[in-house]
Design a protein around this nucleic acid. Sequence first.
DNA 1: CTTAATTGTCATACA
DNA 2: ACTGTATGACAATTA
Length: 631
Amino acid sequence: MKYLKPWWSDGGGLLHLTILLSLAGLRLDVDLDLYLLLPPSTLLWDEPLLAGGPTSSAYALSPFPASGGWGRADRLHPKGREPDPEAEPEGRLLREVRALGAPFIPRTRVDAWLVHSVAAGEADGAHGLLGAAAASAGGVGASVHDSSQAAPGDGGDSRAAASSPLAAGEEEKAPAEPTAQVLDAGGRANQRSLNGTETALSLEDLFQMLSSQPENSLEGISLGNIFPGSISDGMNSSTHNVNFSQAISHDVNLHEAMLLCPDNTFRREPVARTSQPQEPFLQLNSHTTNPEQTLPGTNLTGLLPLVGNQMRNLTSQDLLHDLDINIFDEINLMSLATEGFDPMEVSQLFEEPDSDSGLSLNSSHNSTSVTKSNSSRSVCEGATGCSSDLEPLFHRDLEGAVGGYYPEPSKLCHMDHRSDTGFHGDLAFQHIYHNHTYHLQPSALDSTSRSFSWHGKSQKISKYLNDTDRNLSRDERRAKALHIPFSVDEIVRMPVDSFNNMLSRHYLTDLQVSLIRDIRRRGKNKVAAQNCRKRKLDIILNLEDDLCNLQAKKEILKRERAQYNKAINTMRQKLHDLYHDIFSRLRDDDGRPVSPNQYVLQCSQDGSILIVPKELVSSGHKKENRKGKRK
DNA sequence: CTTAATTGTCATACA
DNA sequence: ACTGTATGACAATTA
């Protein structure tokens, strides 16, 4: 259950920092002060975290940072608090480190803090860089806050207090100090204003500072230069026992420090974290040994009424676990984005109804953007046995197309998750494998840091996704969604024996087998339909051709008939003329002309021609006709 | 926006 | 019984 708004919507300063530090080979420990670094909309809120009542809300975090600001309201608005005359003097952590006689004497406060954090990593309160940086968040960013939510002096910043020695008292007091001592690289103390603009180093600035450094040169960067003044707040508050036997080396830098103590700062609470990644870099770890102490004085339910009841049963460890997951989700999504994917688009994909334009984003983000490592896990994995993180799309896609073949959506864990949270904005997170390894190139990060304008990229990315996905058929998208290791073409064209062998050789779920058979059936039928239509069209075209040919023949025959009739008439006319010509020359025994009205010419079988009176011919014809009729 | 053509899919029959 | 093919009918998509 997560209440995490998309990190890209609010600037993602933490992400900038973590990514950059990860590039430098650093890993960050994050205690609950991490919250201070997170943009308000990125924060997870929990009832235990918020315990203490609304009047104790010292962290009046604005849900709508107007100027990229976020952080503790009292820090951001020191005027809202009275200076604490008992504020912890500066340099306490540094003194501790020095007093312990560590072989490495940190030159700067940040180095000292880092050493302290590494050394204390095994202890309950390993303070990470982010913890210290978070303590400085008030000086880092200017923020809008609801001052009415803040109750000065009520001990309300217990979130930091419980989880970190950057405790409430100092957390509250430090910003109230008009100036704070900061040790520069030379160990000298500088007087810097904590609330002035000169120290209001935004994370964007930090990001640029870090990104401007060569990757390896970050080892030499003193974060004291990066977090002037503000970090000192966190360092002052450190009261941990330090065990230097574990991690301190001579002249340690940040990178070396982490390498020396690879496990300490990555340790998680065994109960609360069952699926924590083990990747070697960029671990944002949250150490809270006592959830109840985490934020005893803070209650932000008023600020976040949406969260309220649904979070009551969660421990802060649960939330921190989720926080980790979501942070890495965010990182992965950033990786997605830098590779050309917009998390928003991914989210839209999963919610897309059955549409051919649907990016099979699934496939895209699976194949290109999400690197599945052994330790990668789906959010739902283990909890509900979800086999595919892409099934929602598959489901929606198949519903209506196949229908009734597949389990109810409610059986799918992420659907439950979504329904539980009622927060659709983070849907995309559910589908990202938790590969916590970060492989972004510095150049990619630079470009990301420069623009970081997701909405601006959205259109191009959307176009890319659509163009890419529109080339895929539904079945292809479905196959990708279920990770079917065969192409649709293979499935359809494969002979029956090979097809059955394939199904038996590979371990496939019932869902996959069902889909494969459906794909084959539909593919075969599709080809059959195409052939059928082609055949039908061919038949029609052939019939049309035949019709044309027959019509042409008919015309030819008509012309021939006309010609024959004409020839017949000509011959008939010639015969008539010849007949009269013959009669005109005939004479009877008396020398008189023979009338053609009384006689006719008749050819005998031997070729002789006889002149026969018509009466005899007509009587003879009548007799023959009678005989013919009788026959 | 409407319409016609095209395409995919399903149901069914048959080989 | 299973599979492939053929085809009418319908719906979705495209031009």
